[in-house]
């Protein structure tokens, strides 16, 4: 019997298999496909302070082994989330991590404060990285702003805090350092990568928002690289790996690279029970490999590079 429990800062999970915000609806949509209570946790779609209509269609387009999305944080706002979704989420039998996005720091803090008073939440994930809204969320590009935000949210909300970071930066490490120094319990890496699809005959971008966020198997190598970079720079910081994870082997690659947990995202769209199937496969693979506790494999990756010896 493999011990699947993992710890991310103050957050303890019964297993490392989570589902990514924006790919699992408000969780109730998935109840027919997945035994929700088996998952390590669920993360419903991003909630904003006020309702947002989101972007016009087309909002998504398939690309090679991936997809672009520009949904634009379509949601009914924090009040509706608390009244309508939280009562259901409290019944799902696993850790519920709320994902929030503010147009500015104050909105993040206000939402975290409200959610901190709600029973039944395991943590709050800060979406400082959505590429599909025009203002406010760019603060994820600025290490100082991320640090300040995490610090303020932590003082306003007693729940474990996870910062979900954007890959759309030249170096993700300083952003992760800022989140860690501000006391984030974990960072989630990575949100979608900015991309574009073009209809050359119409001389138009395919998406109504022109650009979108790339997800799916196509982005896994980028996500692995970023998880590894952050894990090497910050061995004490808990990392949640995200990016093209569809199978147990994907999850194990992220975990040896330094992730303490993973999120199944786009795979749910094209294989609705992907997260639960992955958990079964993961358990089997670890048993076969003779691993007693999944936490023993976290960050065990060793570099192939031979260090250059100084003369």
């Amino acid at each position: 019997m493999v011990d699947l429990r993992v710890t991310l800062g103050r957050l303890q999970l019964k297993n490392p298999v989570l589902v990514a915000s924006g790919t699992f609806g408000y969780v109730r949509e998935m109840a027919g496909f997945v035994h929700l209570e088996r998952l390590g946790g669920v993360i419903p779609k991003t909630v904003t302070f006020r309702p947002r209509a989101g972007n016009p269609t087309p909002r998504t387009v398939e690309t090679s082994s991936g997809m672009l999305n520009a949904i634009g944080l379509d949601n009914d706002g924090i009040s509706h989330f608390r009244e309508h979704h939280l009562p259901y989420l409290r019944t799902v039998g696993t850790a519920v991590i709320a994902n929030i996005a503010g147009e500015d720091e104050d909105q993040f803090v206000a939402m975290a404060e409200l959610l901190g008073q709600e029973p039944g939440l395991a943590a709050v994930e800060l979406n400082v990285s959505c590429p599909n809204v025009s203002h406010g969320l760019d603060l994820g590009l600025d290490a100082q702003a991320v640090g300040r935000l995490v610090r303020r949210v932590k003082s306003a909300c007693p729940l474990p805090i996870i910062a979900k970071l954007t890959p759309n930066v030249s170096d993700i490490v300083p952003i992760a350092v800022a989140a860690a120094e501000a006391g984030a319990d974990a960072v989630s890496l990575i949100n979608t990568i900015k991309g574009m699809a073009v209809d050359w005959q119409r001389r138009r971008p395919v998406l109504s928002y022109d650009i979108g966020g790339l997800s799916g198997p196509a982005i896994k190598p980028v996500a692995l690289r970023m998880v590894w970079e952050v894990a090497r720079a910050l061995p004490q910081l808990a990392i949640i790996g995200i990016g093209g994870i569809a199978r147990a082997t994907d999850a194990l690659e992220f975990m040896v690279a330094g992730a303490s947990a993973i999120q199944v995202g786009t795979a749910t769209f094209y294989n609705p029970p992907a997260s639960e199937n992955l958990l079964d496969e993961l358990t089997g693979l670890l048993e076969e490999t003779g691993v007693a506790a999944v936490r023993d494999i976290i960050g065990t990756l060793r570099s192939n590079r031979v260090p250059i010896q100084p003369d």
């Binding site: 924006g22 790919t23 699992f24 609806g25 949509e29 998935m30 027919g32 496909f33 779609k45 989101g54 269609t57 087309p58 909002r59 998504t60 387009v61 398939e62 997809m67 999305n69 949904i71 379509d74 786009t266 749910t268 769209f269 094209y270 609705p272």
Partner: peptide, 16 residues
Amino acid sequence: ENHMACGFGACFSCVV
């Protein structure tokens, strides 16, 4: 009919 990524309400692609 609309573009859909999932078909079961999770992706919010197919809104009208």
